[in-house]
Design a protein around this nucleic acid. Structure first.
Lengths: 237, 237
DNA sequence: GCGCAAATAATCGTATACAATTTGACCGCT
DNA sequence: AGCGGTCAAATTGTATACGATTATTTGCGC
């Protein structure tokens, strides 16, 4: 979840129960890549970090495991998910399958003010790209996902929106692991092209662009098995 | 989850931690309609029922809330989900969006033995339809969903498979609430037609049949607001 | 020095205990 | 009788406690 998508479609429930706050905080940390895949998330550590008991820490980690962002191994603990190349392929296959449909739904209902909102996002995004510094990089990662999430929000289907949130978050993990170029949104302004196609009411073209956009992101990955960040490979490479 | 889909694609983790067993038990009860929408699921009651502490009961309910099968209201408790008509529409919209894609993926990878497996399912399904008695009805409900879940399993994408599991389960809730005819699979053997189309490698036709099949299920619903519980929805909607 | 077993430490799984919140009831008042 | 307020019961939110499992280290024999 993010402020941009929230601005459009939110089921205001201001009272967040502790565990949810922790979950959101950790999720943000994972998506923004302040937590590397494979990092151990001990219940006690998480609890101490947020000044809550293990009960709440556990609940938060449990929640994140349902979203596929952390994997909990019985009697061993929770770790930031370390998606396998196969998992990565499935994530992008799912996005190719889902996003054109979302795009069509969104285009059918989109209002002029929502188009404006999208353009605003694009502006912000390109601003971040030109900026330098780690915080800008993190904001850029988030902004890049926000575009897809906002489209899902516009589609009006909260279920698909949630699916997309999961897929975008996990995509960030995959890119962190297997991405080659510094950032996925490399040069081409593909998001902008999609908005233009929507505006021109050329749905087929918009879907075409979307599918290729996802393919481009995936093409930037080097999906070869990394042995659990092995100490062996780290040296004989 | 179900035995049929499991038979095809399962990541055997034999050790199920208490909470998961409870979650599965409750989920089955909801999907098979032994628990009505809106039923209160108190943590203590659930715990006593399964002879575990509230901790595990709570974890199970929490898990089910992530799947949309129970709704937990802060400081009030957990209830079997009571999907609104709008939610119901979104569920079926999501299925129409997703299932054709899954079908295409599945058809591309399907083996002859898997086709045989599907036919077996259809046979079982029609056998249950002819049988009478409540246990047969429940088995029929499950079998009807198993067809869609098995297709998802064949598609080979575990992520989409999980999405489908959620959607099928929630569909069962919706049908329990808003269904008119006794059972959704009314007369027409639509599942069988889809398998035939897959076998004939006529993907476009298969997708067409699938979309209509979902539409038929939805058409059997009477999606009008029931003032059963939602005092909030009854007014602010 | 090297492997292997036992003790030790760390961490998770589950239960119980206590605090906070909500709900419903009782009781006096108008 | 109807209304409002206060209190008690029930239920959830969170923390702590203890047993079980896994990882690590120690110590011994070779």
């Amino acid at each position: 979840m993010n402020s941009a998508a929230n601005a459009l479609l939110t089921t205001d429930e201001p009272a967040e129960t502790g565990a949810q706050q922790i979950r959101d905080a950790i999720r943000d940390a994972i998506v923004e890549r302040r937590l590397s895949p494979g990092t151990k998330l001990s219940e006690s550590d998480v609890g101490n970090l947020f000044n809550v008991s293990r009960t709440l820490a556990r609940a938060a980690l449990q929640a994140l495991s349902y979203e596929g962002l952390v994997s909990v191994e019985k009697n061993r603990g929770a770790f930031v998910a370390y998606p396998s190349p196969d998992e990565a392929r499935q994530i992008f296959a799912a996005r190719r399958l889902i996003e054109p449909g979302i795009l069509r739904e969104a285009a059918a209902r989109i209002t002029t003010s929502e188009i404006q909102h999208l353009r605003q996002l694009l502006l912000e995004e390109s601003r971040l790209i030109s900026e330098r510094g780690q915080t800008a990089r993190r904001a850029e990662i988030k902004a890049s996902g926000d575009f897809h999430l906002t489209l899902a929000a516009i589609s009006g289907n909260t279920i698909m929106q949630r699916f997309m949130e999961e897929l975008v978050a996990r995509s960030s993990l995959v890119i962190a692991l297997y991405g080659q170029s510094t950032i996925s949104s490399c040069g081409h302004n593909e998001h902008g092209d999609i908005v233009s196609a929507i505006e021109a009411k050329d749905l087929d073209h918009a879907c075409h662009l979307m599918v290729h956009h996802i393919a481009h992101i995936e093409a930037d990955l080097d999906l070869r098995e990394r042995k659990g960040q092995g100490l062996k490979e780290a040296f004989d490479l």
